[in-house]
Computed example of a mutant assay.
Amino acid sequence: MANVEKISVALTPEMAMTMRQAVESGEYASASEVMREAMREWHARRTEREQALVQLGRLWDDGVASGEAIDGEAAFERIRQSLDARIGKGGSL
């Protein structure tokens, strides 16, 4: 790697053991590779979380813009009555 910065990281004994086992098993060539992958995955999760928060904000704004909220039970009751009226008049669903 041409352009790297060396950083010291403190790990719990369990984390250090897991890292050593990953290297010893041949899954990774070095502890640095393990840390680089961990950082890439952390960054990806962080990016996904930020995108989810933006999407949640858009959905919130859409909900607010859609007008006053109505009671779900009342809405379903109106739907039931409408269906009952159609079925009662010989209509079909």
Rank of each mutant, 00 (worst) to 15 (best):
A65G: 03
E48M: 06
D62K: 11
Q21K: 12
E37Y: 03
T12G: 06
E14S: 14
S8H: 09
A38S: 05
E77S: 11
A69G: 12
G72Q: 12
A74L: 09
R86S: 09
Q21I: 09
R86D: 09
I7P: 01
V64D: 02
M39T: 13
K6Q: 12
E68Y: 07
A16Q: 12
W60Q: 14
A31R: 11
A52N: 09
E24Q: 12
V34C: 04
L53E: 15
T18I: 10
R36L: 00
G90C: 01
A22C: 05
E37P: 03
S82P: 03
G57C: 04
A85P: 00
L93Q: 03
A16F: 06
S8A: 15
A52G: 05
A2V: 11
Y28V: 01
L53N: 11
M17V: 08
Q21F: 07
T47Q: 10
V54F: 07
I70A: 14
T47W: 05
K89S: 15
G67W: 01
L83A: 14
A22V: 00
M35I: 13
D61L: 12
Q55E: 14
S8D: 12
L53W: 07
R86Y: 06
R80W: 06
R45N: 08
A74K: 06
G91N: 02
G88F: 00
M15R: 14
A22T: 02
R86K: 15
E48H: 06
L53A: 07
N3T: 13
G88S: 13
R49N: 13
G67M: 00
D61G: 07
A16I: 01
H43C: 10
A85E: 12
G91C: 02
R36D: 03
E27G: 06
S66N: 06
E48C: 00
Q81Y: 07
Q55W: 10
V23S: 01
G57E: 08
Q81W: 05
Q21Y: 06
A69P: 10
I70Y: 11
I7V: 15
R36N: 02
I87H: 13
G57W: 00
T12Y: 05
D84L: 11
I87G: 04
D84F: 06
P13M: 08
E41C: 09
R49S: 13
A22E: 07
S82N: 13
I70P: 01
A75Y: 10
A38E: 04
A16W: 05
E77F: 05
S25E: 10
I79E: 10
I7W: 09
P13L: 08
V54S: 08
S30W: 04
S32A: 09
E24W: 04
V34W: 02
K89E: 13
I79S: 05
S82K: 14
M15H: 14
D84S: 10
E77D: 11
L53C: 07
L83W: 05
R46F: 08
H43I: 12
R40P: 03
E14R: 11
E33A: 04
A22N: 05
A74P: 03
M19R: 04
E33R: 01
R46D: 12
A65E: 05
E14V: 08
V23K: 00
L11T: 04
S92M: 13
G88L: 03
M1P: 09
G57H: 05
M39N: 08
E73K: 14
W60D: 11
A22S: 12
E33M: 01
N3R: 13
R20S: 09
A16L: 11
W42F: 15
